[in-house]
Amino acid sequence: MSSPNALGVAHPATVASRPGHVSLAGVSKAYAGRTVLDDLSLDLVQGEMVALLGPSGCGKTTTLRILAGLERPDAGRVTIAGSDETTAPARSRNIGVVFQHYSLFPHLSARENVAYGLRIRRVDRGGRTQRADELLELVGLAEHGGKFPHQLSGGQQQRVALARALAIQPQLLLLDEPLSALDATVRARLREEIRRIQRQEGITTLMVTHDQEEALTMADRVGVMLDGRIEQLATPETLYNEPETPFVSQFVGVVNRIEGTVAGGRITVFGAGLRVANREPVASARAVALIRPEDISVQSARVGGAAGVVVEHILRGPLSSLLVRHGADHLRVDLATPMAGSYPVGTPVSLGVTRTRTIVETPVETPAES
């Protein structure tokens, strides 16, 4: 078993071995006859952060609202810390929620906003002021307690919202697209700050987001949702490197689509046989391999034997992308920027694959004309 990290919180391997703390079991929900959640089950263990990632309409926000008690499931069960909360109203659940648009009270100071939940719970003035000041210091706003929301930046307001959610010492913290309203620089910084605080406080947390980078960099586990179900739930590393379905492979990260021949559970791409890693068996003899840009290798080739030609360079910081024309297709190849400079536009190249497995997508069968 893994030992706790520098913040005193166990690594994911340790977290995964703990008993379930929050559970959704067989939860379904429909609106106007349209199924939004379809027999969804999810367990969160004490102290971990799970992110639900997916396109609009996949059911991730409905999942969060059902946990918060803002929606009631049509079927299934919600359990928090061993208590059945399926029909319990939101006000009786010990849950903190941070919304996308802060939702601070404009007429209250930062300190008063943080202490609001404690005031509702009839904590005495001294106790709630002390707790609010502790949390403002935790989120780096100790000197801003007397300011009103309009006097704070967007990032500072979101920190106040986080402190307010933590003030009641919730059993569960819910983050609803918490950073999407912020600019990129603030978002990256606050992402790290929220993760640090979540680990330090050891709070079980569910975050919903459409931002892949946000999910992969913050969560212990990520669930990719589609049509009201979780397609795959895994650590960020496993999700990115070992997707189980074509949807997950294409939704998390970038892929090239390369046609190949399937035989004996392998697909041939650039002369190499890759193991087909789809969760469901693939019966088609022709399929499209989904290969990430960093998993394609290039080397200079003579014009006569070239598999492709470099047609564009795209600088992405420490990495650069080569756009390579391969037959009728254009493939993206990601290399370290200094290495990419060795292949100027017009260079003929040979292509290879550095992975031994891949997810494939089979062509959609079209009905024969009568």
Score class of each variant (00 low, 15 high):
Val160Lys: 04
Ser300Gln: 14
Thr217Gly: 00
Gly26Asn: 13
Val50His: 02
Leu118Pro: 03
Arg77Met: 08
Ala277Tyr: 06
Leu239Asp: 08
Glu231His: 12
Thr238Lys: 15
Gly273Val: 06
Leu141His: 00
Gly308Trp: 06
Ala110Gln: 09
Leu24Tyr: 08
Leu179Phe: 07
Arg77Glu: 07
Ala16Asn: 14
Ser249Asn: 15
Leu40Glu: 00
His21Tyr: 10
Arg355Cys: 07
Ser109Trp: 03
Gly253Ala: 08
Ile230Ser: 09
Tyr343Ile: 09
Pro281Val: 10
Ser83Phe: 06
Val303Pro: 07
Ala10Trp: 00
Ile230Thr: 11
His144Trp: 00
Ala336Thr: 13
Ala307Lys: 11
Leu40Gly: 03
Leu40Pro: 02
Arg131Gly: 04
Thr261Pro: 09
Ala272Cys: 12
Glu71Thr: 03
Arg257Thr: 12
Ser17Met: 11
Pro348Gly: 13
Lys29Met: 10
Ala287Thr: 01
Gly26Ala: 09
Gly327Glu: 05
Gly82Ser: 02
Asp38Met: 12
Pro318Gln: 14
Thr347His: 10
Gly57Phe: 03
Leu226Val: 08
Val324Trp: 04
Glu312Leu: 14
Gly346Arg: 12
Leu7Asp: 03
Arg286Trp: 10
Val255Glu: 02
Val123Cys: 13
Cys58Glu: 07
Leu179Ile: 05
Pro344Glu: 10
Asp124Gly: 14
Arg357Tyr: 02
Leu172Pro: 01
Asp38Phe: 09
Ser28Tyr: 07
Pro178Ala: 11
Ala88Gly: 00
Cys58Asp: 07
Glu365Gly: 08
